[in-house]
Each structure stands twice: as structure tokens, then as C-alpha cells.
Simulated scan of single mutants.
Amino acid sequence: MRAVRNGVQPADTSLDTNDQSTPIGAAAAAAVEALTMERRRPFPRPTRQRIATVANQKGGVGKTTTTVNLATALAMHGCRVLCIDLDPQGNASTALGVDHRSGVPSIYEVLLGDRPLEEVVVRSSEAEGLYCAPATIDLAGAEIELVSVVARETRLRRAIAGLRQEVDYILVDCPPSLGLLTVNALVAAKELLIPIQCEYYALEGLGQLLRNVELVQAHLNPELRLSTIILTMYDSRTRLADQVVHEVKEHFGDRVLGTTIPRNVRIAEAPSYGRSVLTYDPASRGSLSYLAAARELAERGFEPNGVGV
């Protein structure tokens, strides 16, 4: 309530952006309508199933965050998506609101117990058509246990090949290492998606990952291609971030998504609530950025017969 002095009520100088009769109000209404239309517009579905591994042995670059939010955005816009959590920490399972306590049927039993993949897949509450194969702490010992297993590098590929459930996308979240779990993910996939943070040492260790990719291509999976680079943790206030963006685009060319993911507190908060940022705060910069990145990924498509890493 506005104060009244000497019987005179002060003029209302507040800005009513809901009033479409003003230029600002009309512009705000148009922006909201455009954003609503963009959110509702379905993504093109791929003509064939796309299997993408999200990997970078460097920790803290946004692998899990990227996997979860791209999967959620794709599912929200008409695609059927399976997220496979291959990280023993189970952070992707947490962010998708999926139970991953020890003893829960998980990807561990698929890799080491020959359990069919569809028996461990559960639906995520984040979006219609979004599913998750969770990881439990049991997966922590899988690197050692897989060493003595026959065809140890192809366990995940065989499991996916036997999946009867029809999905448009399979996104595999990897641990921050280049061990047998990551090798399984690379052997199972057609595409490699690498998140790179816009910070110092961004490209450190990437050469080793790409050398491993070349070895996998040569000996285990000739169809694997580096299809996508996504830049994360971008801070427009720093010159360094722009330098990293420039270097990465110069090196990887059109494989780098045009959308960069900003540093955003909502992105960091969402997993603690068992949510993706798209459902935790749909209007946040982080949510809108991942939505744009997912649309770009879907509209680009993927040509598996490309050459090179």
C-alpha cells in the first residue's frame, strides 16, 4: 500500500510489464510468447537410434550435468531417451530422481551378471519418455572385476544390442577416467560428446582421450566418431572464457555447438533436489541454454559415416 501524505496520494511510478498497451509491456509479452512457443515446439526425431557417450577424463567439466539436462530436454520435446549411468558415484541417477541405493537393480548387474538391460531401466519423473539405467556403489569395483571377463570391452554394446525397448537416444554418462567403464561406453556408442569447460587447462588431457578414441576406432568400434563438443561453465565477464571458446572452435570447427552453457547457480542447485535444471528452474539461464543446446543437437543430426576422430 502506498503512503498518503497531507491527503495527497503519490503518483504510481511502478512499471507494469503486464500492460501490453505500453511498448515495454508489449515487448515483454512477445518475448514470453516466443519462449513458450520455443519450449513447446517438438524436436526432430532421428531417423535411426543415436547412441552417444559423454566423456572427458578431466573431472568437474559438466559431464553428468550435460548428460542429464540434454536427456531431459530431448525427452520433454517428443523424443524417447535412455540415460545410462556408468559412473559409480551415481550422480546422473540422483539428478534424474532415480533410486540407486546398493542392492537396487543397476547397470552393474548388466555388465557383470548378464542381466538384460531392460530389467534395470526405470522411468524418470523428470519427463515423459525419459528412462534411466542407474548406477550403484557396486559399480566401483567393476573396473577390477571386468579385467578377467571374456569380451570385457563389449559388455555394454551387447547389452544395448539386446534392448527391446525402442528409444531415439541413448546417452551414456562416464566416470572421470579412461578405464574399462569408459572403454565400454566408447565401444557401445556411435557418437562421442565431449564437454569442455571454459577455464584454464580446458584442453589438458584431451589429447589422451582422443588417442584412446583412435585406439577404440582401430580395434573395437570403427563407427565411433567425435560428433559434438559442448562448452560449459562459460563466464562472459572473463577474457579467458572467450579465449577458450575461440581456441576450441578453431581446433574442432563445426563440431562445437553454437550454444555455450553459462556458469549458473541453478544448474548447480538442481541435482541436490533430484531434478534437472529444466524442471528445477525452467526460466533460468542454465535451463534455457541446455534447451537450446539440445535443440541444436537434435537438428544437426548425425552422419555415422564421417571420417576422422
Rank of each mutant, 00 (worst) to 15 (best):
Arg115Gln: 14
Thr13Val: 15
Leu224Arg: 07
Cys79Phe: 07
Glu38His: 13
Arg157Thr: 02
Asn221Asp: 11
Val245Arg: 12
Thr94Glu: 08
Ala142Leu: 06
Ala283Val: 12
Leu70Ala: 05
Val213Thr: 09
Arg123Thr: 12
Asn56Ile: 04
Lys190Trp: 13
Ile137Trp: 03
Asn212Arg: 12
Met76Asn: 07
Leu240Arg: 05
Val213Tyr: 02
Tyr200Glu: 08
Arg152Ala: 07
Ala185Leu: 02
Val68Trp: 02
Leu240Asp: 06
Val4Tyr: 04
Thr65Met: 11
Ser272Ala: 15
Arg39Tyr: 08
Ser272Trp: 07
Val122Asp: 03
Pro195Leu: 04
Glu145Asn: 10
Ala11Arg: 15
Tyr108Thr: 12
Ser287Tyr: 01
Met1Phe: 09
Gln208Thr: 15
Glu204His: 12
Asn69Gly: 03
Tyr131Ser: 10
Val98Glu: 02
Glu33Met: 13
Glu247His: 09
Arg2Ser: 12
Gly162Tyr: 03
Ala292Thr: 10
Ser287Lys: 08
Asn212Met: 14
Leu210Ser: 08
His100Arg: 13
Val277Thr: 05
Arg115Phe: 09
Arg158Ala: 13
Gly90Tyr: 00
Leu70Cys: 06
Glu303Met: 11
Met233Lys: 13
Gly78Arg: 03
Asp281Asn: 14
Tyr200Phe: 15
Ala11Gln: 14
Gly62Gln: 03
Val265Gln: 11
Thr36Phe: 12
Gly59Ala: 08
Leu96Tyr: 00
Ser124Gln: 04
Leu257Met: 04
Ala151Asp: 15
Thr22Asn: 11
Ala135Gln: 01
Glu204Lys: 13
Val61Trp: 02
Arg41Met: 13
Leu74Thr: 01
Val98His: 00
Ala142Tyr: 00
Thr36Pro: 00
Val121Ser: 00
Ser106Cys: 07
Arg2Ile: 07
Gly97Ser: 06
Asn221Gly: 09
Val245Ser: 05
Leu257Trp: 01
Gln165Met: 15
Leu206Thr: 10
Leu178Lys: 02
Gly253Tyr: 01
Asp235Ala: 10
Val277Asn: 01
Tyr290Phe: 15
His246Met: 10
Leu278Glu: 03
Gln9Trp: 10
Val120Phe: 02
Ile196Val: 15
Gly207Met: 07
Thr154Leu: 11
Asp85Trp: 00
Ala283Lys: 13
Ile230Cys: 08
Val121Met: 11
Asn18Ala: 14
Ala159Gly: 05
Thr136Leu: 05
Glu296Trp: 05
Cys83Ser: 13
Ile196Met: 11
Glu118Asn: 14
Pro222Val: 06
Ser106Leu: 04
Asn184Gln: 10
Pro271Asn: 07
Arg300His: 09
Gln20Phe: 12
Leu186Thr: 01
Cys174Gly: 07
Arg80Glu: 08
Glu214Val: 13
Val265Gly: 01
Asp12Phe: 03
Thr47Leu: 13
Leu112Cys: 08
Ala159Asp: 01
Leu82Thr: 02
Glu303Gln: 11
Ala30Thr: 12
Arg155His: 06
Gly274Trp: 04
Glu119Ile: 09
Leu297Ser: 04
His246Leu: 11
Glu33Asp: 13
Glu303Gly: 10
Val277Ile: 12
Ala26Met: 14
Pro222Trp: 08
Gln217Ala: 07
Asn6Leu: 14
Pro23Phe: 12
Ser106Asn: 06
Gln20Arg: 15
Val68Met: 05
Arg41Trp: 08
Ala95Asp: 01
Ala27Pro: 05
Ala159Ser: 08
Ala218Pro: 06
